[in-house]
Amino acid sequence: MRKTFSRRARVATGATVLTAVAATATAFGTVSASAGPAAATPAAASAASVTSRATTTSTHLTVDAAVKAAQAALDAAEKENQRVTVAVVDRNGNTLVTLRGDGAGPQSYESAERKAYTAVSWNAPTSELAGRLTGAPNLKDIPGTLFLAGAVPVTAKNAPVAGIGVAGAPSGDLDEKFARAGAAALTR
Rank of each mutant, 00 (worst) to 15 (best):
T26S: 12
N138V: 00
M1K: 13
S52E: 00
W122N: 11
S46R: 14
A35P: 09
L99M: 13
A116F: 07
T13C: 09
G144R: 15
A77L: 08
P125F: 05
A185C: 02
S121G: 15
L133E: 14
A130H: 07
A23N: 09
K177H: 12
L139E: 10
T98P: 03
F178G: 07
V152I: 01
A33S: 13
T51A: 15
G101Q: 11
H60Y: 03
T95A: 04
A9H: 08
A184S: 11
D75G: 03
A116T: 13
T24N: 11
A151L: 08
S52G: 07
D90F: 15
A35L: 07
A149H: 14
A40C: 04
K3M: 03
A22K: 10
G131P: 15
K79Y: 08
T118I: 08
A40E: 09
I164K: 05
S58T: 13
T30P: 00
T24Y: 10
P42N: 11
V154M: 01
R7A: 14
P160R: 00
L74M: 13
L99H: 07
F178Y: 14
V166G: 08
S49R: 11
P37C: 08
T4N: 07
T30D: 07
A38E: 13
G105F: 12
T134D: 14
E176Q: 15
A149T: 05
A130W: 04
P42W: 00
L146I: 08
V154E: 06
G172N: 14
P137M: 11
L61D: 01
L146F: 05
S6Q: 00
S111F: 11
T57V: 11
V31G: 05
R8A: 13
A66Q: 08
A72Q: 09
E80S: 09
A15T: 11
G36S: 10
K140L: 09
A27F: 10
T187L: 11
R53S: 06
T51M: 11
F147N: 04
A47V: 00
K115C: 03
P125V: 06
A169G: 02
T19D: 02
V11P: 00
S34N: 15
A38M: 14
A48S: 14
M1S: 13
T134A: 15
L74G: 08
L146N: 01
E128A: 15
W122R: 12
G14N: 05
A130V: 02
A149D: 10
E110S: 12
G14T: 04
T30V: 04
L148M: 10
L74N: 11
L96G: 02
S171V: 03
A48Y: 06
G14K: 06
D64H: 02
T155P: 00
L186E: 07
F147Y: 10
G163W: 06
A45V: 09
A73L: 02
A15K: 09
K140Y: 02
A119W: 05
A116L: 04
L139N: 01
N94V: 10
S49Q: 10
G103L: 09
K79L: 14
S111M: 04
P125Y: 09
E176R: 14
A22F: 15
P153W: 04
N138S: 14
A38H: 05
A73P: 12
S46I: 06
T134L: 14
G105V: 06
S58C: 00
D90N: 15
